[in-house]
Design a protein around this nucleic acid. Structure first.
Lengths: 214, 214, 214, 214
DNA sequence: TATGAATGAGTGTTCATTCAT
DNA sequence: GATGAATGAACACTCATTCAT
């Protein structure tokens, strides 16, 4: 590691976080040792403690940065006004690639969080952000008549997040990717398409009902 | 522990599993010690090893029995022909009570499973059973015209399971119970009610009624 | 170590304390490792933790038992009505033998105690006992006219204890044993003999008040 | 730290020693880290190693300078011809103030010295100096008839030093300051006053006055 | 001279597992 | 079957010391 640069400390932290992310993802919080992380970086154990005060501290820091990728996918998929099913498909495929490298990290985080209030707070903050993105997306969707007026947007945003999270649990439980994708799309279709149907009288989009029943 | 009875071995195992379940639920897999479990039972540490070859073995055995309660709730809520929203509400409230006692155990299991094929297989088996119950429920719902013909039942069953699992993740992330309930019901409403709405607008989609009764 | 005996636990504790005493005496609190103590006993490190919850706990327990030998010497030297100079000589020689095996242990204890209130309390309790023995001895001495009426006994008891403790510091500082013995006896002589001289006026001591006020 | 000055090296050393003294006094040798000392000085850890080769080296150097304050008090209290009780009282009060800031440092030093010959030599040198001061004082006292001819001065000097050192051990063991002062004065009184008393009873011991004025 | 990032050996402590009784 | 004392392999964390800058 080069030194003396002013942003060096941040650079170093970020390299450690990166290594930590990979090691925790591979081995889980408890199985991963500080030595594993240090070795991954080609650095001595002690060096990590120059930047993080404890394993727990490192883990929490990692939890703060981990959802960055998630957020990016969320924004890129749902941040625009695309067709929701298309957005959702895009989201699904991107997320799948992401979580492939993280088999169980999120569950490790969740199980820790269930007993660690500090971690819980971090997750809450992250969740608030996800919720906001989706709420914005759905609000926009309502304007565009893709989402019905009778829909309570915030809860629905939460249920979309829950749905994705839940599919991750099923993937770990052996559900195939195709099955997961079907489940994801079927649910999305049920949520968005039916709304559409109900809200929109056929003359509005004559081709859709046909394709459904057909 | 009483002795000599023939089914004694099974009885003993089951008592240990029960204690393990409670202790793992309270403390998580890694924080729980064999001693904790033994003490909960009023038995010596060594005794557990007469019935289970290792902590991991015990944990896996517990994972096999753990979903019993879940299954019971699933059956009692979705095993009949009730109104789906009502079933779902019932399910939600019962599940909430259940998972209150085991804040993060399911995540612990999932994170282990992501690295432990044996555990993964167990989860898969469990999931298959859940899927079956819900598939049955939805199939029945289709007959009763609550679920549309255009719906692909198996994926929807999976997405319902995913939805619940995902809500658990959000509860750990600090979502309030009321928010979770709203999300759950809003999603269910979106899935079922719109169908319902659609069903009650025959003139709207003339082809539907036919396929429903058929 | 044999097992199952009821007093086994106490026996084991006492063996560990003995080893700890020796190792701490040889290496000092900080340089001594739990492994050192375990190896001295021919036992694994973990075994010690079955009987003592931490190194500190072990050290404190040792501090409680360490003065046993000191007390015995104190009683055997000052518990009777012997001539004080003779008692003191006896005390000196016995103590010397004792502390030869403990070069700096008592200072280790004192330096820890200066920052550890629990340890301080233990030392206080021990000191109270020493004080009592010497107070008894001096009170007896007063009856026997070896100690003057004008002497405040408790403070003098303390100063005798201090004197011994202080000689130990000088021994560590390189004072020879003979010099230490001379210092000890010279002080004792000054304290007791002068009294003696003063006290034993033949006529005999209606003059005491007089001698005091000069 | 300013630079380039010729005596700079000594100046720097002395500043480090000062910081070391304070930190070691506060935390004890083992708990104090090189970083603590460096930070106290506002200097980097590495800087200390330019002046001292190791922590041990620094500690030993500090031990050499540490008794400076002690010596000053010793001289100012016992360096003159005052009444011994008054000198002793003065000494006690000054020393108390001094040792209040370093609760257990001297014991730390002693316990190290018991295993470190180099340190032992330093202590011996210091002790020799103390002994000399007190021997001078007592010799002077003899001339002034405060100290009896029958007294062996060097041992008594040692016992006075021992007495003070020992009182420090008792203070750590929980003896109150007042009790310590009483013990100190009672012993001093026993040593000096009885002599004194004897001196002021000419008719009592006719031989004494002669030797006194002689 | 001075810095401070990096090292790496070392230590207290835990705990799953074993085994003599 | 059951016990619980003992093991021993880990692991998080610390800190004196070094050295490139």
């Amino acid at each position: 590691m080069p030194k003396v640069v002013p942003e060096y400390k941040e650079e170093a932290k970020s390299r450690i976080l990166d290594a930590a992310n990979r090691v925790f993802a591979e081995k889980g919080y408890h199985e991963a040792t500080m030595d594993d992380i240090a070795k991954r970086l080609g650095v001595s154990k002690g060096a990590i403690y120059l930047y993080f005060s404890s394993k727990e501290d490192l883990f929490e820091a990692m939890c703060k940065t981990a959802p960055q990728a998630f957020k990016e996918i969320l924004y890129s998929s749902f941040g625009n006004e695309a067709n929701p099913i298309q957005s959702a498909t895009e989201f699904f495929d991107k997320m799948l690639k992401l979580s492939a490298s993280d088999p169980g990290l999120s569950f490790e985080i969740l199980s820790e969080a269930s007993r660690n209030p500090a971690l819980k707070r971090i997750l809450k903050r992250n969740h608030a952000e996800y919720e906001e993105v989706l709420t914005g997306f759905l609000t926009e969707g309502r304007k565009r008549r893709i989402v019905g007026d009778n829909v309570d947007i915030r809860p629905l945003a939460n249920s979309l997040i829950a749905l994705w999270n839940g599919l991750e649990t099923l993937l770990v439980s052996g559900l195939s990717i195709d099955e997961a994708r079907s489940a994801w799309l079927e649910a999305l279709k049920a949520i968005f398409m039916n709304q559409h149907t109900a809200n929109h009288n056929p003359q509005d989009r004559p081709s859709r009902p046909a394709s459904k029943t057909g």
